[in-house]
Design a protein around this nucleic acid. Structure first.
Lengths: 201, 201, 201, 201
DNA sequence: GATGAATGAGCGTTCATTCAT
DNA sequence: TATGAATGAACGCTCATTCAT
């Protein structure tokens, strides 16, 4: 009985946490950090302001928690997608697809992960890149295998990955700004086409 | 004499305006809109706070003026660069170069034009794209010429330009975040290589 | 069985009460009323916050209960000490000693009885003086006896007692502020010497 | 003209400062630090809240400014009073009188200087005693002269001065609590009588 | 016109109190 | 009965904007 009680309580607590994080992601993404009011998050979550502060030390902490969780999930999905394929080019393709898919499913994180890093440059970037590099590093290996197999040109791998990332982030960001009018994966074929073989005949 | 006086006055007024805009660009870019205080702009401009308000209705208006002016200049430079070349691919190349160069020379506008659009999504975007489309439209023509001449693949032109823009914005933005440690044009060759012929052998 | 149960329960209840009062005295004295959090009291007492509220209506009531109990004890000790002696001057001496001793043993009440009265001026003062006057009145009799016996000068008795009280409170208070570095009764001889015969030769 | 302007402005600024300090002394003394709202001070001073913050960094700083200024004045008055007399006992008498007079004229400082030290023990006490010792030290000399002249008993001088201070602070404090119903100097004769020659015949 | 002192709406955060379990 | 999660009123402080000089 005690066990059940504790379990229930813990579950409830985690649900609340998630609930707050979800709402917060939405609101932070919509308004940006500075214009977001903790009150709005609390209200939209159907909770009192004090409750939000019970779960997160302060506004900053709440924001960073949202970001952290998002980054974690993104990284996992991308790594998982890459793991499913054998061939380097297929791995890259799947990674890109997963990346786009993630932001399609979690569009409330676009503002936070792509946009709002400047608010907490030091902190977020560190976390962002710590995790990020995990799949960047994995991606690098894949590129090198592709080069070894003669499938990819002998290029500056880090630079090429950087450019890929920029393309993706830019794409996602514009998609968001323009109102998310179409499934973003629609853009995948053209993006791959250009990234793989360029626009020049 | 009156004329001279008026001329002088007008000149002074315009100098003040420009001075405020320059400082504001710097400060808005450094801190973001919300964290920027009008006080700081006034002080750095060597003016009283009231004077800033004499030249710009309010903080929002000042911000948008900075953005407007930046966009205008960017557009002019890109169009100018394209005009200097004959061949479509060269035009594209020069346009890209001009784009990067602009943000290298006006890095204080990166935050404002690339980053802070969310603050005033509706307003800025409108202005951004109104002006933007002027060279997007021009760029479209260039792409079509390239296709007609058999130099560029038969692709969705708008999409390809969108992807190019994303690559560029992402590149500029990351360069800024990472501390502007190298001349950004350094990245031009690789970017062109990938955009023109892809990474696949 | 019922009886035993009730007895046990009552005992437990009283123990809890006392426990809370003791902790509360400590914390109120350390931090002052306003800076004391009910949470801290509950935690230090090893109880839930709700439990504290079961025993005391609210924070104010808890504070006043602490004060009440302290005053009661102080009064009892002083009266008791006076009762043990025959001669007026000895009674006064013992009363003073008991007063100092009380705050030495209950230094957590210094802040509350001597210091924090301003928080609840009306209420505390009433209680303070209601009880206080009980030994003030007794003391007055003692002074009058001393005067009758020709041992004490013919002075304004109430005034003299007031001054004595001030000396004592000031002494205790300063001793507390300075860190309670020595047994306060050490100061008794000099205090008596001055109060009894002054500094002038 | 400029000079006059500056002078006027400076004067105005100092008046505002004083005005805020005076109101703040009143309110802090009445409510204690924690229960005092900056808003109340601002309103009573006929100013906006922001104006108070223009003159004082924060609530704490405002409080300490009130205390500082009070201590300074108190010290000056006491030293001045002592300087006017020749004989040690007269000096002591005048010092005591000045001390009481000060709190009679500045009763709003009683709460702050005598009572609220606990809020900022470290800071206030340091300042309190730094300044305080200036007249304590002077007083010590006076006592020693009195002893040398055979007018004062050979006692522990520091202890005797401590007891005097306690008597005074206690007297002032009780006078305040009891509602300041009579001129406090009325108590001077009895206090001197006891402090100088005791209650015992 | 130029200034910066004055203002107060607005927001982050705390904590006494309540109440469902 | 005991608990501590939830609450929201309250308050310190900031800063865009105004306006008297």
């Amino acid at each position: 009985m005690k066990i059940t009680d504790n379990a229930k309580r813990k579950e409830l607590t985690q649900m609340r946490q998630k609930q707050i994080l979800d709402v917060a992601a939405e609101v932070f993404s919509k308004n940006g950090y500075a214009r977001t009011q903790v009150d709005e998050i609390a209200n939209l979550a159907g909770l009192g302001k004090g409750t939000v502060y019970r779960y997160f030390k302060d506004k900053k902490n709440l924001f960073l928690s949202v970001a952290d969780k998002g980054i974690e999930n993104l990284k996992d999905l991308v790594l998982e997608a890459m793991a499913k394929e054998k061939e380097p080019l297929d791995k890259i393709k799947k990674a890109i697809e997963a990346y786009l898919k993630f932001f399609e499913d979690n569009s409330s994180l676009i503002g936070i992960l792509i946009h709002e890093q400047s608010e907490f440059q030091k902190r977020i970037q560190k976390r962002y890149f710590d995790h990020y590099y995990e799949h960047i590093n994995r991606m690098e290996e894949v590129f090198r295998q592709g080069i070894a197999k003669g499938q990819i040109k002998k290029i500056d791998v880090r630079g090429a990955i950087g450019i890929l990332t920029n393309m993706l982030n830019g794409l996602v960001y514009m998609w968001q700004i323009e109102g998310r009018k179409y499934p973003i994966v629609e853009r995948l074929p053209m993006l791959l086409k250009i990234y793989f073989s360029g626009i020049v005949k």
